[in-house]
């Protein structure tokens, strides 16, 4: 039997939580089509929500307030626009205000190329407000770390998932090169493009370091994250969300503050995502990353 995929890993964690941990899972149309890309088991503890996005999030927060550690599934991150208020205004705040927590695990699933309202990546929104721990796990091991982080703490967690990673079985590893001219930090689905970007740049004689970021908040900037930047002298943070005021810009700023070295951001353009090319405004792929790296290096020569 081969290694489990990310989807199978999520399903396994969920089954254990529901069958052995007394947990709950709430979401819309969970059992309707493919059990959310094969990530949800058919077992007890699943609550099919009516099409009431704000109330549905409120139900999940209420369950969290009384200790059920609910998993709240949002099939498309764009719906966080509706679901967000009970999560941000209540779950995120109550520990500070009342000394009582509402630890809800929000599975917010992102996609690409599915049009204007099913392709959003909104984890930056949850990084902006205090209270949530924010992850973007792209591999089975990272998902287990994300889950353990949730269970070991009493904060709500946003797991910014991406459909492009559900079939992965292997981990994503950092890349260090002794002659690296720049360090690229990856968030979410652009991380799956890093190996190819490295190869393309190497063909031009440009070498880069790659650092994978799975936990976005609280952001831990230790030696693993900072040493490659100090060695290469320049940084670039790449995210699947919007660039302006987004995760990439915020983390680039944090890197610069921590090292005194320049770090740039690459995310989506400040344009509404549309259905068809060339207006899809998709997540940065290897070619886009390569182009930005070239641009940074040419401007700094």
């Amino acid at each position: 039997m081969g290694q489990k995929t990310l989807a199978e890993t999520i399903k396994e964690i969920t089954r254990r939580h529901l069958e052995e941990g007394g947990g709950m899972l709430l979401g819309q149309s969970i059992s309707a089509v493919g059990w959310v890309n094969g990530t949800v088991p058919d077992c007890k503890g699943i609550v099919e929500l009516p099409m009431t996005d704000i109330a549905g999030a409120g139900f999940a927060v209420g369950a969290a307030m009384v200790g059920r550690r609910p998993i709240f599934v949002i099939r498309f991150q764009d719906f966080l626009m509706l679901n967000g208020s009970p999560l941000i205004n209540y779950a995120a705040k109550c520990k500070t205000l009342h000394g009582k927590s509402a630890p809800v695990f929000v599975r917010a699933i992102a996609s690409d190329g599915l049009g204007p309202v099913h392709s959003g990546v909104l984890h930056s929104l949850f990084m902006h407000f205090p209270g949530f721990r924010v992850w973007a796990p792209m591999s089975p091991g990272e998902y287990r770390q994300c889950w353990d982080d949730y269970m070991e703490n009493d904060d709500p967690v946003l797991a910014s998932e991406h459909r492009s990673a559900f079939s992965r079985t292997t981990e994503l590893t950092d890349i260090r090169h002794g002659q690296a001219a720049l360090t690229v930090y990856g968030i979410s689905t652009p991380r799956l493009e890093m190996d190819r970007a490295c190869r393309l740049l190497a063909e031009e004689g440009i070498h880069i370091n790659v650092v994978h970021l799975a936990r976005l908040k609280p952001l831990a900037l230790g030696e693993r994250e900072l040493a490659p930047l100090r060695a290469s002298g320049r940084g670039l943070v790449v995210d699947a969300g919007y660039e302006i005021c987004g995760a990439a810009q915020a983390i680039a700023c944090a890197l610069t503050e921590a090292t005194g070295l320049p770090a740039s951001a690459l995310g989506l353009q400040d344009e509404t995502k549309c259905l068809c090319p060339p207006y899809q405004n998709k997540s940065p792929d290897a070619a886009t990353i390569v182009a930005r790296v070239r641009s940074i290096l040419s401007n700094t020569k």
Binding site: M24, I54, A55, A57, G58, F59, A60, V61, G62, P70
Partner: peptide
């Protein structure tokens, strides 16, 4: 209100 309903569902 939804929080109370969610809590009632949970316990």
């Amino acid at each position: 209100v939804p929080q109370g309903v969610g809590a009632a569902l949970a316990n």
